[in-house]
């Protein structure tokens, strides 16, 4: 049920066609499945393994390396509050306490209505704008508890739908690569090394 749907399978095959080796498409396909379900389901990983010719264990191993792939359902909005030094000095802890109280969940939890997931984050590279936080990886600078409440109200009311798409949305405009620019599937007899590497020296 949570495998890639029919439309996405067609898209997946197109994405696979862009790479010389099918398994190079693993990460894009993980994004695709996260876009479809909001998180990466077990069935989707098995399906991606089938599509790119890898075992499920390899897909799981690759996917779990990346922080932005989620393996359990997350809310429509993923709220990441930075807790690294600059933000902490300028009130990140207070912001987090306030957020926990406002949303009624501890960091790492998802609200009962499935709208918000609250997470603690490491440095978001916006120290000049501390305290910083992100909603679905969109920055919110110089946050205050009042601004936070306003933001949550706006999100809940759908007033920011145009700006912040639901979690998992990678891009609202999908990259279009003409078929003739795709790398195509490499021959099985080609040497087992990346296509960009020079051919090995001929041995006498």
């Amino acid at each position: 049920m949570s495998r890639l749907n029919e439309a996405n399978v067609i898209l997946a095959k197109e994405i696979i066609g862009r790479y010389p080796k099918a398994r190079s498409a693993t990460i894009p396909l993980l994004h695709l499945s996260q876009q479809q379900n909001g998180y990466i389901t077990s069935e989707a990983m098995v399906h991606i393994g089938e599509l790119v010719g890898a075992t499920s264990a390899e897909i799981l191993g690759t996917a779990t390396f990346y922080e932005m792939f989620k393996f359990e359902p997350v809310g429509k909005y993923l709220v990441n509050i930075c807790g690294t030094m600059s933000c902490q000095l300028l009130g990140a802890d207070e912001l987090m306490h306030h957020a926990e109280a406002r949303l009624g969940v501890k960091a790492g939890g998802t609200t009962a209505d499935g709208l918000f997931t609250l997470e603690h984050a490491e440095c978001q590279a916006a120290c000049t704008e501390a305290p910083n936080m992100q909603v679905n990886y969109r920055h919110c600078h110089r946050m205050t508890t009042a601004a936070f409440d306003q933001l949550i109200d706006d999100l809940a009311a759908g007033r920011l739908d145009g700006e912040i798409p639901p979690h998992g949305t990678l891009a609202r405009v999908r990259q279009q690569i003409p078929a003739d620019k795709a790398a195509g599937v490499a021959s099985l007899d080609a040497p087992a090394q990346p296509a960009w590497m020079p051919a090995p020296e001929a041995t006498s």
């Binding site: 499920s56 264990a57 799981l60 191993g61 690759t62 779990t64 390396f65 990346y66």
Partner: peptide
């Protein structure tokens, strides 16, 4: 040729696993 075990997670949490139930 049976890559059924793999590193899982990252950093201090890296560990070896199989796919669940496989």
């Amino acid at each position: 040729g049976d890559p059924l075990i793999h590193f899982n997670g990252r950093g201090n949490n890296t560990h070896i696993t199989t796919y669940p139930d496989e």
